[in-house]
Simulated assay, not measured.
Amino acid sequence: MSDRRLEVDGVSKRYGDTVALSDMTFDVRAGEVFGFVGSNGAGKTTTMRIALGVLAADAGEVRWDGAPVTLETRSRIGYMPEERGLYPRMRVGEQLEYLARLHGLTRADAVRATREWTTRLGVDGRIGDEVQKLSLGNQQRVQLAAALVHHPEILVLDEPFSGLDPVAVDVMSEVLREKCAEGVPVVFSSHQLELVERISDRVGIVRAGSMVAVGPVAELRGRGTEELVVDAPQAAPGWADGLPGVAVRSHQGQRTVLALGDGADDQAVLRAALATGPVREFARRLPTLTELFRDVVSADEATKDECKGAAA
């Protein structure tokens, strides 16, 4: 496998007094699916636009294969914007062929690639229709075809799964894994964190314009506080309150999710649960990516509150 990679190194961007990106740093390796997650306004789209040259960074650099990304390099990137970038009155086939030609394909190769990707993504029956006449899900499929039609060396996809039904999500996930197997580095953003956890090799969590956590999903989950899931159907609310080192994360029907701090005794938790009646489930688990993300966002909000209090 090639060691080529897309590197975002110390990228910063300001709009007046607003900091959009601050020392944004991460890399996406050849043959890797990298999930890029964060709240709205955290800096994901700005980062992608800088990588594509749509925006200029105030500081830092984006590199591919060790060299700064140039106009020629960008022609080899497949980009899928969050906002639809298709011509609504243009027919699907004509549009994809046109975009492929802009990236340097011959007419014959452009036609061949258009047929290949519209078939692969299930929109070959709409190849003669105007884009504006397609459903939002089919428009999303055509948008992905536009990112793939020129056989890119890098894929940068902003919310590619937005608006897709479960079947289309499975098709698109399979396509991304196939491109990954071909050695293409794939970076995509999504608010569907369960999906990100399922298909990503590594994940980066961005907060307030900076990368705050990055690594394989299992590694990130391992950094979180271990939890205990207890299903005690006869337990009254508050049964676990006051147990040393134990915090109640959530109640999910009859199941209670507990966070275990240092020194917490899971056997003491079990005894407290059994005191309420039968226990049908008692299992340790690591937090999900969704729960980790919520913790990051909560930490951000707490920091903002502290800053406001100090300013007051």
Rank of each mutant, 00 (worst) to 15 (best):
P166H: 09
A108I: 10
G104Q: 05
L134Q: 06
G104E: 04
L134M: 15
R177A: 08
R115E: 12
C180M: 06
Q140G: 02
K179E: 08
Q139N: 06
A108V: 14
E116H: 13
P152T: 15
R101T: 01
T114Q: 12
A145E: 15
D109A: 15
E97N: 00
L134E: 07
I154N: 11
Q143H: 07
V186H: 02
D124I: 04
C180I: 00
V149C: 06
V111H: 08
A168T: 11
A108Q: 10
L148K: 08
V184I: 09
H103C: 15
T114L: 10
V149T: 07
W117F: 14
Q143G: 12
R101W: 04
E153W: 09
R107F: 01
A100Y: 09
K179N: 00
T118N: 04
A100K: 06
D158N: 10
S173K: 15
P160W: 13
R177I: 07
H151E: 15
A147G: 15
A110I: 07
R177E: 03
S190D: 03
T119R: 11
V123P: 02
E159A: 05
V175C: 14
G128M: 02
D109H: 12
H191V: 02
G183S: 15
N138I: 01
A113L: 04
L155M: 03
A147L: 14
V142N: 11
G125N: 02
N138A: 01
W117G: 03
G104S: 07
D165F: 07
V171A: 10
S189R: 08
A168C: 09
Q140P: 01
L144D: 02
L136M: 09
P166M: 06
A147Q: 14
G163A: 07
V167D: 00
L176F: 05
P185L: 12
H103Y: 14
E116C: 08
V175F: 10
V175P: 12
T114D: 08
A110S: 10
H103Q: 12
L134C: 11
E182L: 13
V186C: 05
E182T: 10
A168W: 13
S173Q: 08
R115N: 09
V171N: 02
D129G: 04
H150V: 02
V111Y: 06
L164Y: 13
S162W: 00
T118R: 03
W117D: 07
L155R: 05
K179Y: 07
V175E: 09
P166D: 01
I127N: 00
E153Q: 08
